[in-house]
């Protein structure tokens, strides 16, 4: 028996201590506002843009921001919200369904620390939630179609009512098309989305094209999100009917949709959320709360942007 074990055991402890002290030294001193951002979804592109926008605005304010990514772990997000409360930060920003982290929100509320949602969902324990207006996005594309087809013609709609954020888009498009007597909605399709929505939408659109063989018998395709619009585009091109001037619109402006719009074919428009703007506006909400203001609106909407061939390259 030698002292080897003692040395080894102690060196582990010493290493831990040294590491922690080095970290503490590296930690900047407390600034004017200390804000913790908690999300399980930082690996997703949208979330990265929110966080970038938030950090840029926070840097202008001179806040000290700590971004915590729990890599998909919701319980860890609850734990980190609790830690931020314990630490006594001035505000917390979350990008996770508030209903799932309610245990953490309750502690923040008890400690009087405001929590702002960054595209998180509406919740009574949030000071406010900053997001895009799903209704407004549908207004953009439905009115685009009405204007492009001169308020008259047959329109095919792709909707998905079981999912509330998409269902609300369909409701708006229904109202706008119904407001134009010359427009007839000849089909309101709910595609099977198990494969992502493109393949089944294409099959459904092929059937509709077969049922409406006359050129000009379909004036436009309005899709509640981009995948069905892409499926409809494939069907129209494969049927050799790309030259009929059928106008297609989607929503979300995902990369594949942007490519299709840039190509200048039938897929003419989609709507992009302003992710950076959501981050910046969330910082604006935090600034208002830190200034002592009570934010009356439970949701703050950030304007979205219609994407067409004219601005898709930007």
């Amino acid at each position: 028996m030698t002292t080897g074990g003692f040395r080894a055991g102690n060196s582990a402890g010493a290493m831990l201590l040294a590491g922690l002290l080095a970290l503490a030294a590296a930690t900047p001193a407390a600034a004017e506002g200390r804000v913790t951002v908690v999300t399980p979804y930082l690996a997703q592109p949208g979330t990265q843009f929110y966080v970038d926008g938030f950090k840029a605005a926070a840097a202008e304010e001179g806040w000290e921001v700590n971004v915590i990514d729990t890599a998909g772990d919701i319980a860890a997000a609850v734990a980190r919200i609790e830690d931020a409360v314990t630490q006594g930060v001035d505000a917390i920003v979350i990008n996770v369904d508030p209903a799932q982290v309610e245990a953490g929100l309750a502690q923040a509320q008890a400690a009087g620390i405001p929590v702002v949602g960054m595209d998180a969902g509406m919740h009574p324990m949030l000071a406010t939630n900053v997001t895009s207006n799903g209704y407004a996005m549908a207004v953009e594309t439905a009115t685009y179609i009405v204007n492009r087809i001169g308020g008259a013609g047959n329109v095919v709609m792709f909707v998905f009512d079981p999912f509330p954020p998409v269902q609300m888009r369909g409701v708006i498009a229904d109202a706008i098309f119904a407001n134009h007597p010359g427009i007839t909605v000849i089909d309101r399709v709910t595609p099977d989305v198990q494969d992502g929505g493109i393949a089944d939408s294409r099959a459904k659109m092929e059937a509709i094209l077969a049922a409406n063989p006359e050129p000009g018998s379909i004036a436009a395709v309005w899709a509640a999100w981009d995948q069905p619009a892409l499926g409809a585009l494939q069907a129209i091109e494969a049927a050799g009917r790309a030259g009929e001037g059928i106008v297609i619109t989607g929503i979300d402006a995902n990369p594949q949709a942007r490519d299709a719009i840039a190509a200048g074919g039938n897929f003419e428009a989609s709507v992009a959320q302003d992710f950076i703007g959501i981050g910046r506006t969330a910082a604006g909400a935090v600034a208002r709360l830190l200034a002592g203001e009570t934010i009356r609106e439970p949701v703050i909407y950030v304007p979205t942007r219609l994407i067409t061939a004219a601005n898709v390259a930007e």
Partner: peptide, 17 residues
Amino acid sequence: MRRLRRYGTLIGFAGIV
């Protein structure tokens, strides 16, 4: 010494705390 070796991790834990 045997005891200290065995408790190295525990000492480390106490150090962290």
